[in-house]
Design a protein around this nucleic acid. Structure first.
Lengths: 263, 263
DNA sequence: TTGGTCTTGTCCATAATATGGACAAGAACG
DNA sequence: CGTTCTTGTCCATATTATGGACAAGACCAA
């Protein structure tokens, strides 16, 4: 069904573990649901698996403590044991350390909310957030927020920074999930093209009504985009003139971060 | 093979997901290996699975980014994507918040290193650590350290606080893993009995030569032990007299924490 | 060199497992 | 009290994961 997935070093896509891969696909969808969780039907729709299969997977994961069920809503969410497993890893990533001074500087200069977002698989994941000094702040996105690549301005920026073909593959893989976020492939592809032309990602309508976002991409030494830096503000605060100013600051700091992780 | 596992509300242990359960068993063993990771052979021995099976599981998980391989040692460890999934959960647990003042107080009073350890499945997991003011501190155990229940004094304390039958089941389930930690079922069961008699867990020989540990258990409102509070110090600093003093402080604070999570 | 003893990695016939179509049951709505 | 949502369950079946046997590489000693 999906002939995508070509691992880096020509590693043949190993078989004999369909169930495990499916369980992980389910987990990633649940992760995108955050604390609130995701109804079963949405997991079914997003993964393309059948309902009995998703049901079985989810309930086994519950028994194992990997997934929890919100008794009020019936939605499923990432469980207790996932952070417990995560403790086996050392705390802050290279990127987070490298980006820290830039976020500090840009936040002070701009005054609006700043986000650092990484790519993980076909998703974006918000890994850091700085609240600015301006009294109206867009706080819609929490650290840990996860969305399909393409639905946020950060996602569009990251896609714009990769080879067109790769970007198209990811967008296609996410197609089933776009519905939930009220967008579609054509719109996303259009935004990616626009971002390439501009040199940064931009959204007149953010995920929240009346907000606007600007994102620059951050590439690893090998040219792959690994992250994006985003400013979100109420739209009136980001007119054409200020948009350019903000974008310039973001572009400057993105370069600094690229140096820090490259050298 | 294992007829254990009876879920709380008489939920029948669901079937149709052997592979997923096995993958999780593997993951938990890898988590116990921490940053350094675990050689394949040890995963095989600890899980009781066959080598081809473990090999296949581990490599699929690598392709999925859930597991990483240390190229120097060839050992396998928990990968990048696990903390990423964990971000979908809100940060600090109830227990961590409730225990904070007690850890603060006990640490100031005692002066040696304090650990807060929870039970997760058949493992103990260190979730907090306070370094005391005394110049010689036992820092062997990091936050995130994971061990089979029974090999640390915290584990013994937690087992001592549960119904004897449950404790025996867990110890039996961990039997295969004790070898790695140079202990065995008989020893562990003996220590549990001793801890029950004393009212707290104690180890003349900690996981590091020349250290001694004292642990009290913390029970949830329903009587299940959920955590342990441990003091570790060089043995000479914990003679019989001071042992009693330290144990009394720990027992007192354990009660306080039980109140905080109970009320 | 050869032989021994460790590892990890791979193959593939086969048994066992996960699959999903069809059905059930409950909730919300008008 | 039908309609349309949702989630949950059953079980015959074919797809999938399994593991015995074998391979290959690393290291050590004689």
């Amino acid at each position: 069904m999906d002939k995508t997935k070509f691992a880096r070093h020509a590693t043949s896509p190993r078989q004999g573990a369909q169930a495990i891969r499916r369980a992980l696909a389910v987990l990633r969808i649940l992760a995108a649901g955050g604390e609130a969780g995701v109804p079963l039907a949405e997991v079914v729709q997003a993964t393309g698996l059948t309902r009995p299969t998703v049901h079985r997977i989810v309930h086994v994961l519950i028994e194992e403590g990997i997934v929890e069920r919100n008794e009020r809503s019936g939605h499923y969410a990432i469980g207790n044991q996932v952070p417990e497993l995560a403790l086996a890893r050392p705390r802050p990533s290279r990127l987070l350390i490298a980006a820290n001074p830039s976020l500090q500087r840009a936040s002070a200069e701009i005054g609006d909310t700043l986000f650092l977002t990484v790519r993980t698989g076909n998703d974006t994941l918000c890994v850091d957030r700085r609240i600015g000094i301006y009294p109206i702040q867009v706080l819609s996105i929490e650290v840990g927020a996860r969305r399909p690549l393409g639905v946020s301005s950060a996602g569009v920026a990251i896609l714009a920074a990769m080879p067109a073909q790769d970007a198209r593959k990811i967008v296609a893989a996410n197609e089933k999930r776009f519905e939930t976020y009220k967008t579609d492939m054509a719109t996303v592809l259009g935004e990616i093209t626009a971002a390439r032309r501009l040199g940064y990602g931009m959204r007149e309508i953010g995920l929240i009504q009346g907000t606007k976002s600007i994102s620059t991409w951050i590439k690893t030494p090998d040219g792959q985009p690994a992250a994006a830096m985003t400013v979100s503000a109420v739209r009136t605060r980001l007119g054409p003139r200020r948009e350019q100013e903000v974008a310039d600051i973001l572009l400057r700091e993105a370069k600094v971060i690229e140096q820090a992780i490259g050298g």
